[in-house]
Amino acid sequence: MKITREELQAAAVDARLDFSAEETEPLRQKYQEALEKIQAVKEDMGPVDTPPLFYPQEVKNTYRNDRQEEPLPREKALANAPDTDSSCFHVPRIIEG
């Protein structure tokens, strides 16, 4: 698989990150090498027909007791936010332009 600059830039957009022009090519080469190694592993392992395993233990859904508990107090929930008023998180405008 050949990684293009455009694919790397698309992945950066998905990760909400920005790389400068100088950063992009070395990074592309690193990913290229990493995926070439994965390709070599695939060839070494041969086809893998087992079902995927997303958690090491077969995790079962767990339910808490159905009773009301105290939530995190509002002032604590807001305390670490960079921009708030007494009741809300503030965000920049959402519509571009």
Binding site: R16, N80, A81, P82, V91, P92, R93, I95
Partner: peptide
Amino acid sequence: IRFGERTRGEHLQDMYVQTR
């Protein structure tokens, strides 16, 4: 938004990218 350092952006998406 809810915690951590924020870097200003022109709009919400730009703020996410600048911050991260």
